[in-house]
Amino acid sequence: MKPEHVFEVDQIVAGYDHKTIIKEVNLVIPNNKISVIIGPNACGKSTLLKTMARLLKPASGEVVLDGKSIEKIPSKKLARTLGLLPQSPIVPEGISVADLVGRGRFPHQSLLSGWSKKDYEAVAEAMDIMNITKLANYHIDELSGGQRQRVWIAMALAQQTDILFLDEPTTFLDITYQVEILDLLTDLNHKYGTTIVMVLHDINLSARYAHNIFAMHSGKLMAEGKPSEVITSTLIKDIFGLNCQVIEDPVSGSPSVVPIGRHHINYS
């Protein structure tokens, strides 16, 4: 099991230029659990994740890991505890899958060393988990969207962090791949106890896979807790402005949102 950490967001205000997007958010990330941040477009989910991953400096407030502000932790050291898969990472031209996954080893390597035995093992492990070992010598350009996403996650896994952030890891993927990616992340959480925090668009998949939900609306944290407690028709109305019924997901027993539009309504 991965070691315990205390990861806190303390009174964060953050944004771009002079536009404030996150307005005084406080939260504690549950250890060894999967947390999902949900909320409507432009509510600040990605901005919050970026601030937590030190990609964005908060205007005020602090992100604290084990009692220390993350800005004060040396960047390579922090990268051994905390990893992030950005929403749209950039693929270097013509690189092979194994070499790309190996770049996740950067925080563990010294300036000049080649790959150590440990590096090879970490890369192999990450690729085995993501089921892409057979693709090791392919060029990234040759892969499908779903395969690519698994490669990126493998790179983040090779980093061997205790905490992993993912910014919309399933966006643009077919439903089959979405479920596959979320299953793999759940395996990872079960097997190693990796603390996972991700931004997802699909509320029903979020409710199914998350231990904990953070619901946001216009830069503020509106609710947090177990999906069964948080996902209610009132909350969905409040943060998404959508009328809906919340039913029990027949497969997982988690809450499932059934939207109510203006048409196709069977009862009065």
Binding site: K50, A53, R54, L55, S75, K76, K77, L78, A79, R80, L82, G83, L84, L85, P86, S88, P89, I90, P92, R103, G104, F106, P107, Q109, L111, L112, Q159
Partner: peptide
């Protein structure tokens, strides 16, 4: 420059990945 080779290869992945991997 050779000492910074690895850093350069991480910068190639874009700003966000590079920061996450601990590159200044």
């Amino acid at each position: 420059i050779i000492l910074l080779t690895k850093h350069l290869s991480i910068l190639e992945l874009g700003e966000q990945s590079a920061i996450s991997l601990g590159v200044n």
